[in-house]
């Protein structure tokens, strides 16, 4: 790997970790969303060092262009309430959770660091690998796989997205004033019918009790 690549890795890694820390620590969700955006861009850079050009573009399009924007829209829709005031009530549980995760992460990172010297290092394309090597991770190479071997999975994912869209509408749409009134009327009618039934049952049991023991 070239020196530029190495530099890019360290730059993106630093920004990625720093923005991740900012995402999970900033109080304001809007700021956190911006930190997330930065994180995503940093990861896109990492993908470039890994010859995943198409994924880097996709990362920017989908995450930065869609998901983060969705977050920002939601935060705007909710308004100032999107920021939750501090509350020490469950501090203990949260501290425990962070401690456990920190322990696990430390163990995992130390393991990885220990085995790290044995792992392969990156190298550029060599002559033996031929012209194909430069194609790795490009739109053409990944697109070919997507539309041949994985076409069914690809279509399934589109169905999943459709379902998600319909689900999101169903969950978040709410009611018009008219619909809300109609639903309230239906609920009142049902409660009245239930009360009537219950009264009839109570009357019947009273009668049975009165005539019992014959």
């Amino acid at each position: 790997m070239s020196l530029a690549g190495t530099l890019l890795f360290y730059l993106c890694a630093t920004i990625g970790v720093g923005s991740a820390v900012a995402t999970v620590t900033l109080r304001s969700p809007l700021r956190a969303a911006v930190a997330l955006l930065l994180h995503i861009v940093a990861l896109a850079g990492l993908y470039l060092t890994l010859s995943a050009h198409f994924l880097a573009a996709l990362q920017l399009l989908v995450y930065a262009g869609a998901v983060v924007v969705l977050f920002v829209f939601t935060i705007m829709l909710i308004g100032p309430d999107a920021e939750v005031p501090p509350n020490a009530r469950t501090f203990g549980v949260r501290a425990l959770g962070v401690a456990v995760v920190a322990l696990l992460t430390a163990a995992a990172v130390s393991t990885v660091v220990r085995i790290s010297p044995q792992t392969p290092t990156l190298a550029g394309c060599t002559a033996e690998q031929g012209a194909e090597c430069g194609q790795f991770g490009g739109v053409g190479a990944l697109g070919r796989v997507l539309y041949t071997d994985s076409v069914i999975l690809f279509e399934l994912v589109s169905v999943l997205l459709l379902v998600a869209v319909i689900g999101a509408v169903a969950v978040a749409r709410g009611r018009t004033t008219k619909e809300a009134e109609a639903a309230k009327a239906r609920r009142l009618a049902r409660e009245a019918a239930e009360a009537e039934e219950e009264a009839a049952a109570r009357k019947l049991s009273a009668e049975v009790a009165a005539h019992g023991g014959h």
């Binding site: 790997m1 890694a13 970790v17 990172v109 990885v112 290092t121």
Partner: peptide, 18 residues
């Protein structure tokens, strides 16, 4: 040089932060 281990360590760290 940057090895696979570097990426794995970075990913582990980000996962832990998340």
């Amino acid at each position: 040089m940057i090895s696979l281990g570097h990426y794995l360590a970075l990913a582990t760290l980000i996962f832990g932060l998340g």
